[in-house]
């Protein structure tokens, strides 16, 4: 670079340069936009008329008593309910302004973009390394030697590398529950999702593992958008930017997490966050 071009950039120019580097530039600020969504299994209505945007790069916690429909809501966002007998939906879910049910939406690509982590760790019956790269292979993202690089990168990202680097070809079931969940997280991250859905990701884990997973989740934003179903109110407060309270299939209240917990507007929300209703 010569002397002439190396002059001081104005703040505006910096902004423009950064905006150019930002992969999310020019994309809607709400990565997922749910509009008037109702979900039914047969004659039973599980979710009625929910409208809520999910802002890019944030963590949203979905809380509510068992049977409030929050898990069903979550599993709808990557269309995991589509094959369930009797499942119907009304309304729309937009991913980057495009309906997830639109005919131009490829289901497999949708699920690559919207990853999921389950309540119980579910590593596949293959080696640790093969687990990390399972999705990468399926989508043909990398192959051969590149897979080793992907495996190491992702295992480092979830803080598992040092624990497993000498046994990449071992069975994943010899790992502790917490390590298995981190492995599943590495597997989900490896395909480069934009949104990650987490269905009570730590409810099967001990407190130390829970802390490790929670700390990790905070490092994933703002690169990713996280939507977490949790029964652990403390967890919702610790990790989420916004919280949504579901009760009997309705989205009763939502807002910034501190506000929802400290000054809930709805009496049901107040009872739930204060532990008077489980």
């Amino acid at each position: 670079m010569d002397e002439v071009t190396r002059q001081k950039a104005t703040p505006n120019e910096v902004d423009r340069a950064l905006a150019h580097l930002d992969p999310d530039a020019g994309r809607p600020s709400n990565v997922v936009d749910v509009r008037n969504l109702s979900l039914h299994f047969g004659a039973k209505t599980v979710i009625s008329d929910v409208t809520i945007p999910f802002e890019r790069g944030t963590i949203t916690a979905l809380i509510g008593p068992t049977g409030s429909g929050k898990s069903t809501f979550l599993r709808t966002l990557n269309r995991m309910n589509d094959r369930v007998v009797g499942f119907r939906h009304e309304g729309e879910v937009l991913l980057d302004d495009e309906s997830i049910w639109s005919s131009s939406q490829d289901l497999l690509t949708l699920r690559r973009r919207v990853g999921m982590l389950f309540q119980r760790p579910n590593p596949f019956p293959m080696s640790i390394k093969d687990n990390v790269v399972a999705g990468v292979k399926a989508h043909g993202i990398a192959k051969g030697r590149e897979l080793d690089v992907v495996a190491e990168t992702r295992l480092r990202e979830v803080g598992l590398w040092n624990a497993v680097k000498d046994r990449l070809n071992d069975s994943p079931y010899r790992l502790s529950g917490g390590q298995q969940q981190l492995l599943c997280l590495a597997r989900a991250l490896a395909v480069g999702p934009e949104v990650l859905l987490l269905d009570e990701p730590t409810s099967a884990l001990d407190p130390l593992s829970t802390e490790a997973v929670e700390n990790l989740l905070r490092t994933l934003v703002p690169a990713l958008t996280l939507i977490v179903v949790t029964h652990n109110l403390g967890q919702a407060r610790r990790i989420s930017d916004r919280t949504m309270f579901f009760y009997e299939g309705r989205l009763v209240e939502h807002g910034p997490t501190p506000a929802l917990f400290e000054s809930p507007r709805d009496p049901d929300t107040a009872r739930y966050v204060n532990g008077l209703m489980g």
Partner: peptide
């Protein structure tokens, strides 16, 4: 099956590999 599905594996691929 859910894990395979959620990773975006097709039905056939998930069946074969997992």
């Amino acid at each position: 099956r859910e894990g395979a599905e959620a990773l975006g594996m097709s039905l056939g691929y998930g069946l074969r590999k997992v």
